[in-house]
Amino acid sequence: MSYFVFHLLFVLPPILFLAWIQPQPLAGVGGLRAWLGLPLIAIVAFIYTTPWDNYLVWRKVWGYGSDRVLGTIGYVPIEEYLFFILQCILTGLWLYWLLARQPDSTQQTASPLLRVLLMVVGVSLCITGILMLRSPSTVYLGLILAWAAPVLTLQWVIGAAILQAMQRIWLIATVVPTLYLWVIDRIAIGDGIWQISEMYTTGIQLFGLPIEEATFFLVTNMMVVQGLLLLLLLKLPKLEAIASVDSHQART
């Protein structure tokens, strides 16, 4: 199975299904934020992930079968760049579907202690990731944490109130696509579409899936879900009037 066929079989069908069943107004709020949310998150993810993933392949942290891809740009297969975008759309559409069935949450307050605690957790994850780079067996996990932790920390500090108010949606929106991506990632590795280096991994596996890959999909889905929640629900004074008008028009 090629990487492109993998997308056709496992990634595109759930995206098309979720797009088909999306209720209106989109994400329960409609308006410009909802329509621009997915492409904006996908573009940001593409830009942020591209140099990091190229480094991983160059470092031989992971690789791919040359006969399984259409071609490469830099060190990374074309299908991998496509996956950056498709994962954002998949997870984003699932979140949108959940939000459309979630009663409006007006509470957007978080204690300063929560913000400080989240900042400490985020900084600790980043430092842990950097320290892990000292040992070959934890290089992949360290690169994941050092790369993801700054974004997660920023989202936690800025959006603590929203994430606290939407914790149930946040959990379901993150866990479900993460579990699905774990399953299909395990299928791809088993089929030899891509390979994970034994030298740069701990050897710990979750039902045959390297713990590093499981961590990667967890943190990336967290970044997508949290980014969209902040984009859709963060109350910015200058945008509130526009957002309220868009929401009213979408509901009528």
Rank of each mutant, 00 (worst) to 15 (best):
W97T: 14
E79Y: 00
W58A: 13
L56C: 08
W58K: 14
W35A: 09
V29P: 13
P103T: 02
L93W: 11
G92Y: 06
T109D: 14
L70C: 04
G63W: 07
W97P: 12
T50A: 02
L36Q: 03
Q107R: 05
L98M: 11
G37W: 02
V61N: 12
I47L: 06
L82N: 01
L56I: 06
D53L: 00
I85E: 00
L70V: 04
I43T: 10
R33H: 02
R59E: 14
I73F: 12
P39C: 05
G37H: 04
T72C: 06
R59S: 15
Y75V: 05
Q102Y: 05
G65A: 14
I89C: 12
F46C: 01
C88L: 11
G92M: 13
G37I: 08
F83M: 01
Y48P: 04
F83Y: 02
Y55W: 13
I41C: 09
G63P: 13
D67I: 04
G28C: 07
L86A: 09
Q107D: 11
E79K: 00
L36I: 13
W58G: 14
Y75D: 10
Q108F: 09
T49M: 00
W62D: 07
P39G: 03
G28Y: 05
L93S: 15
F46M: 04
Y75K: 11
S105C: 08
L32M: 07
D104T: 12
I89Y: 10
Y55F: 10
V61F: 12
W58E: 15
S105H: 12
S66I: 06
I78W: 04
Y48I: 08
L98H: 04
